[in-house]
Design a binder for these strands. Structure first.
Lengths: 214, 214
DNA sequence: CCTCAAATTGACCGGTCGGCCAGTTCCTAC
DNA sequence: GTAGGAACTGGCCGACCGGTCAATTTGAGG
């Protein structure tokens, strides 16, 4: 352990780790209770730092919230781009793979679902450019399949993407509301896989070119 | 104007009108800026009443917000039940009619879209019973069509409803995000009708029984 | 070893906001 | 017409919270 190690040894003061601790604590609390309901003091307590330190690193509460969204959404779009890149199926299969990947991603990241909803209610436009880029690449991919006759050509590729996102996202947004009332006899309705199978079935049949066309 | 008129003449003191004025003002402001961002004093100003009067009628700020949600959601579910009742189409057509009606309802009531999103982020369970009832009636309707072979029988009716709600709701939730970045060349993508046509096309083909089955 | 900037702390301030209360006005039922 | 209760008002309070600031500690570079 020589003193020349400057990056990987934990130091007593580690501003980067501090930033991460604050971001993690704030993200959890904000998503749990909403930004306004959580005082900075509580974030500080949970992160094991002082209130002033949060202001030192992030300026204001709003800027902290922005940093949280920035971090998660960039991570999100990078992952989505990765998935789109590596999906090497062909024809409608690429849509099935994409939809299942997207659905399972949301399933593993419930926080993301909430942040998407928050982005809407707060009318937040940040990261819209990144999202646009991602869509554009998806559209190109679909257009190729359409040209090859593997996907119905009368559908706008943009709307095709929007559709399978809608089918995935809305499920996780509406699910919690039903958990409260659905009885035990209908509990199976809440299983993610069952919904996914039906949603995929509807979506795929909807975009697949019909064999016989009047 | 006899004094025996007790119900229909406007009186100098009209508690019911006051309640409505407060609810209207609060709903507009809450949805515009979020419940926490709007002080009761501002609601009072906009409604033309005193702050104390709001507490007199509704108790606390939270109870006021509850009353707002209660009012809108009961109205919403009643309208939806009405639509479901009067949709006298048959076969898959009933789904098309329902989906178009739902889509256009959301289009005319952007506040409702926001309240649905808020219901999710605030984890609000109120009115879940009403929603459940509505779903049950829709499910029965679809089951009949399925028995008659007019709709694919391998799909769960519950998920069918969920699907066309998802396709409608998500559109209006994601639209604002794109308005900021979409260039003029792609502005047509934001037109509600264009999306609706494609979404309906996908959905209907997805639930329609295939003529030839391998 | 010394220096300087960054990290970190605790104390404090000013403003805001939700809720309460004492008092006044008005409708209504007897 | 009068008593009582509901509608309505203005003023006030206390808690909370976001942000600032001066002071202290720590680490890295010269």
């Amino acid at each position: 352990m020589s003193m020349t190690e400057t990056e990987d040894t934990p130091r007593r003061r580690d501003p980067e780790a501090t930033r991460v601790a604050i971001l993690d604590a704030a993200e959890a609390l904000f998503i749990e209770s909403g930004t306004d309901a959580v005082p900075i003091s509580q974030i500080a307590r949970q992160a094991g730092v002082t209130k002033s330190l949060i202001h030192h690193h992030f300026g204001s509460k709003d800027q902290l919230w922005d940093a949280i969204k920035e971090r998660r959404f960039t991570e999100y779009f990078e992952q989505q781009a990765e998935i789109l890149q590596t999906a090497d199926a062909e024809g409608v299969e690429v849509l099935e793979v994409s939809m299942r990947a997207y659905f399972n991603f949301l399933r593993r990241n419930p926080n993301m679902v909430k942040m998407m909803a928050l982005r809407f209610v707060e009318e937040d436009d940040t990261c819209a450019a990144m999202e646009n880029d991602l869509f554009r690449r998806g559209v190109e991919r679909i257009e190729e399949s359409q040209a090859r006759g593997e996907i119905r050509a009368d559908l706008n590729p943009f709307y095709i993407i929007k559709s399978f996102i809608a089918l995935s996202l809305s499920w996780f947004q509406s699910k919690p509301m039903f958990c409260a009332t659905v009885g035990e006899t209908d509990a199976h309705l809440l299983e993610d896989e069952r919904y996914l199978e039906d949603a995929v079935a509807i979506f795929l049949e909807g975009v697949r070119p019909r064999p016989t066309n009047p």
